[in-house]
Structure formats: structure tokens, C-alpha cells
């Protein structure tokens, strides 16, 4: 007998509705890739900035942050690729994607006006990374990201209070704990490989 002709009791109907809605809710997309891209790039920028400042005579070691530009291209590429291969688009996916777009615009504006903020970009990057991570965690209901966002906010507060070189190491630690580790946990949960 075809499925559509089966009789449904009212209780069965309600159970069916609940089961199908829960199926759609359990959908976690490949968003971990963005945490890995931005996590590694920001970590690299922190360490490069630190290395250039401590061990070279480069006039503007802050320019190390311009490696973040690579992130815009990689995010665009992977965003397009994921969008093309995804067979379902949930509302939380849309919100999640737009959170990332909003914060990417923020990073871009910060980089563009880096001179105007006297190259003191570090705590602001932590602040914004904390915002995007926290909101991502709330949207996909994933606790490690929520905690990651809080860790990044704490890193931002510390970065505002300490001198430049320590600030960079604080940020590197913040990114590692608040961005990369939750990103890898998400990747592991998703059961995929990059």
C-alpha cells in the first residue's frame, strides 16, 4: 500500500509532526570550516605581529594583520561551495551565514581604517570574534562556541589592559581556546574532514 493512503490516528499525526520537525532541527552544517579559516589566520597574524615586533626592525609590524584578507577569499569560496552542495537550507543556517557576513564586513572596515585606530587592532578583533562566536553558538545551539565567545570577550578585556606584546600573546591564546578548539569540536561532531 502506498504511504499516503495509510490511515493516521490523531495521536499518530502529532507524533509524526514532532518527529519530522526534530529531524530538520538536528541539521548542523559545515560551518566549522569558517572557524578553522579565521582561527588559523588570526592566530598566525598575532604570532607574525609578535615575531616582527620582537625580532625585526620592521616599521609597521601591525601590517601582519593584512593576512586576514586571505580569509575573505577563502570564506567566499567555501561559502559558495557549501551553498551549492547543501540539499536543505534551514532558518538557522541563514541567520548563521548572515552573522558571518556581518562580522566579515566589520573586520574589513577595521582593516581599512587600521591607521585611524593607531594600529591598535588586536582587542577589537577579539571583541568582534567573541560576538560572532557567541551568536553562532546560540544559533546552532552548540555550547563550546558559546563558551568560546565568552573566552574571546575576556581576552579582549585583558588585551585592552596589557602592553602591546603581551596583548598579542593574550589574543593568540584567546583565539586558540575560543575559536579553534570549538571549531575542531564542531568539525569532529559533524564527522567530516576538511
Amino acid at each position: 500500500m502506498e504511504k499516503e493512503e495509510q490511515n493516521l490516528s490523531n495521536e499518530e499525526s502529532l507524533k509524526l509532526i514532532t518527529a519530522m520537525i526534530n529531524k530538520a532541527k538536528g541539521n548542523i552544517q559545515d560551518s566549522y570550516i569558517f572557524f578553522l579559516i579565521w582561527g588559523w589566520l588570526v592566530l598566525l597574524a598575532c604570532l607574525l605581529h609578535y615575531g616582527l615586533m620582537k625580532f625585526t626592525t620592521v616599521e609597521h609590524p601591525e601590517m601582519a594583520w593584512f593576512i586576514l584578507i586571505i580569509g575573505f577569499f577563502l570564506s567566499g569560496y567555501f561559502g559558495y561551495k557549501i551553498g551549492k552542495s547543501t540539499s536543505v537550507k534551514t532558518y538557522s543556517d541563514s541567520i548563521h551565514r548572515n552573522i558571518w557576513i556581518a562580522f566579515m564586513v566589520g573586520y574589513f572596515i577595521l582593516l581599512f581604517f587600521i591607521k585611524e585606530i593607531n594600529y591598535n587592532i588586536n582587542p577589537l578583533i577579539m571583541l568582534m570574534a567573541g560576538g560572532s562566536t557567541y551568536l553562532s553558538g546560540i544559533t546552532i545551539k552548540f555550547r563550546p562556541l558559546i563558551y568560546g565567545g565568552i573566552i574571546l570577550w575576556i581576552a579582549a578585556i585583558i588585551a585592552f589592559l596589557v602592553p602591546g606584546d603581551i596583548q598579542l600573546l593574550t589574543s593568540a591564546g584567546g583565539i586558540l581556546l575560543g575559536y579553534l578548539i570549538p571549531g575542531y569540536i564542531l568539525k569532529y561532531k559533524n564527522g567530516r574532514n576538511v
Binding site: 499516503e4 520537525i21 532541527k25 536543505v88 537550507k89 532558518y91 543556517d93
Partner: peptide, 15 residues
């Protein structure tokens, strides 16, 4: 009907 209700329940939860 089972299948149509399943489809509708699924689509009501996603974009």
C-alpha cells in the same frame, strides 16, 4: 495523510 504530512512538517521547519 502520512507522506504529505511528513513533507509539510519538514518544510515548515526549514527555509
Amino acid at each position: 495523510a502520512q507522506l504529505r504530512l511528513s513533507v509539510m512538517s519538514l518544510l515548515v521547519s526549514v527555509e
